[in-house]
Design a protein around this nucleic acid. Structure first.
Lengths: 172, 172
DNA sequence: TTCTTGAAATATGTAACAGAATTCAAAAAG
DNA sequence: CTTTTTGAATTCTGTTACATATTTCAAGAA
């Protein structure tokens, strides 16, 4: 009866047919994080669909394919985690650059502050946001609001460059 | 000589003194993700410091305490992962709401589109962004740019509400 | 031809283990 | 008496090992 045994090519569950399509190994994690990590790795909960506006691409549906693929905010906005921080903007001195009161700024300290970049500087212990202009060897911090005057910038004890603003996050 | 044996209260490594301060357990993960996940749970690489601009709070330093704590972009911007998607804005019809050409929009489908909310709608297979106005039982989609006219909105085959814009992400 | 069944092979969650790390107190040294 | 060294106790930690589940192929039954 039992003539079904013996070594047979291709029998059994295929190698590499696990849910990840690659080898796995056990890693010890804190119990409170296990569920979150598994969602992170298995369902890629943080990668959300990205659509394009103003482009006629059939009738898009979140359940269907994503016209522009998926996006992870942290990966997309934070290129250098160790050198990145956030700053909460105050006032309307940079309204011309699209920075409103209360906006969240993504600041990268590893970028070089070239002419024309929007930078975060500390002056007298306060963080402030301005556009940097280099002109004839002089560095200016220029607000994008005609109500405010440009100020000259010299790296010293009371004035220090913190980083370059890469993104502005505005809540509606 | 060896009179140091036997059960002794308090001897040995203290219970709960592991790096997480809570019990751990082994979890099987794909090898390519192990390193990333360990950085995620151990160093909380995704939680970055948040500072306040325009507030004199001493001399802030990324190495010191963070005046405003830390922030995780995904957690902060995406409240309902299953109901959230991103949309790439095109054109300048919503410039008045701070939405520029190329901006990334965070859209929540679980929010109700009340009067005054900025919404994403599909019209003739195209996704578009407008401010919703309800007036005497009529729903209008109003651009925030006087060069464009408001259009009347009726939920039907060719016009469908996709969600409410919660955040605008602008690159500099 | 189609359905059922048995064995094979891998996936998967977790117990278990070996070595490292840490703590207390006895014993030794100064 | 004070300080340093040493040994055992206890837990942490990364990984191995294993029991069970799952999936596949093909023989046998219908």
């Amino acid at each position: 009866m039992t003539n079904q045994g013996g070594r047979r090519e291709g029998a059994g569950r295929p190698k590499g047919s696990n849910q990840y399509g690659e080898p796995t190994r056990p890693v010890r994690l804190p119990v409170s994080q296990v569920e979150r990590v598994l969602r992170f790795v298995r369902e890629r909960e943080h990668e959300l669909p990205l659509y394009a506006c103003g482009v006629s691409a059939g009738f898009p549906s979140p359940a269907d394919d994503y016209s522009e693929g998926t996006l992870d905010l942290n990966t997309h906005l934070v290129r250098q985690p160790a050198a990145t921080f956030f700053a909460r903007a105050r006032g309307d001195s940079m309204i011309g650059a699209g920075i409103h009161d209360g906006d969240l700024l993504v600041v990268d300290r590893s970028l070089t502050a070239e002419d024309g970049k929007v930078v975060v500087v500390s002056i007298n212990g306060e963080l402030t946001v301005k556009r940097m202009r280099r002109e004839k060897g002089v560095t200016w911090l220029v607000p994008e609001n005609s109500d405010y005057p440009p100020i000259q910038f010299q790296e010293q004890d009371e004035a220090h460059l913190w980083g370059v603003v890469t993104n502005v996050i505005h809540s509606l």
